[in-house]
Computed example of a mutant assay.
Amino acid sequence: MSESIGFIGLGKMGLPMAKNLLKKGYYVFGLDVDQTAMSEFQSFGGNIGKIEDWVHDVQFILLMLPSSTIVNKVLQEILDAYSSEKNIQQESLMIIDMSSSYPTETRKNCERLDSHHICFIDAPVSGGVKKAIDGSLTVMAGGTSEHFERCKRLLGALGSNLFHIGPVGSGHLMKAINNYLSATHLLASCEAVQLLEAFDVQPEQAIHVINQSTGKSGSTEYKFPNFILNEEYNSGFTLDLLRKDVEMAKQIFIDAQAATSMPQLVFEKFNEASKALEKNADHTEINRFVSSYLLKRGISNEESKKNVTGCSDPSIRVRSSSM
Results as ranks from 00 to 15, higher is better:
Glu303Trp: 11
Ala258Glu: 10
Gln264Cys: 13
Ala281Asp: 04
Asn280Ser: 13
Leu295Asp: 06
Lys305Cys: 09
Leu277Ala: 07
Leu295Arg: 14
Ser291Cys: 08
Glu268His: 12
Glu285Met: 12
Lys279Met: 04
Pro263Cys: 12
Ser291Arg: 15
Glu302Trp: 03
Asn301Ile: 13
Glu272Gln: 15
Ser300Ala: 11
Ser300Gly: 12
Lys306Arg: 13
Lys269Phe: 06
Lys306Gly: 12
Phe289Met: 01
Ser261Tyr: 12
Glu268Phe: 11
Ser304Gly: 14
Gly298Val: 01
Ile286Gln: 02
Leu294Ser: 04
Ala258Met: 13
Gln264Ile: 13
Ala281Lys: 06
Ile299Ser: 04
Ser292Ile: 00
Ala258Tyr: 12
Tyr293Arg: 01
Ser300Asp: 12
Leu295Asn: 10
Asp282Gly: 08
Glu272Lys: 10
Ala281Pro: 09
Lys269Thr: 02
Ser292Val: 00
Thr309Arg: 09
Leu265Asn: 05
Phe267Thr: 01
Gly298Ser: 04
Phe289Cys: 02
Ser274Val: 01
Leu294Glu: 02
His283Asp: 03
Lys275Val: 13
Asp282Trp: 03
Leu265Gly: 00
Tyr293His: 04
Asp282Pro: 10
Phe270Asn: 02
Val308Arg: 10
Phe289Trp: 14
Asn307Gly: 11
Asn280Met: 08
Ala276Gly: 07
Ser292Cys: 09
Asn287Lys: 10
Leu265Ser: 06
Arg297Thr: 07
Asp282Ala: 03
Phe267Tyr: 15
His283Gln: 09
Val308Tyr: 14
Ala273Glu: 01
Asn301Ser: 09
Tyr293Asn: 00
Phe270Trp: 06
Glu302Thr: 00
Gly298Thr: 01
Ser292Asp: 03
Leu277Cys: 06
Lys279Asn: 05
Asn280Ile: 04
Ala276Tyr: 14
Ala276Arg: 10
Ser261Trp: 08
Gly298Ala: 05
Asn271Thr: 06
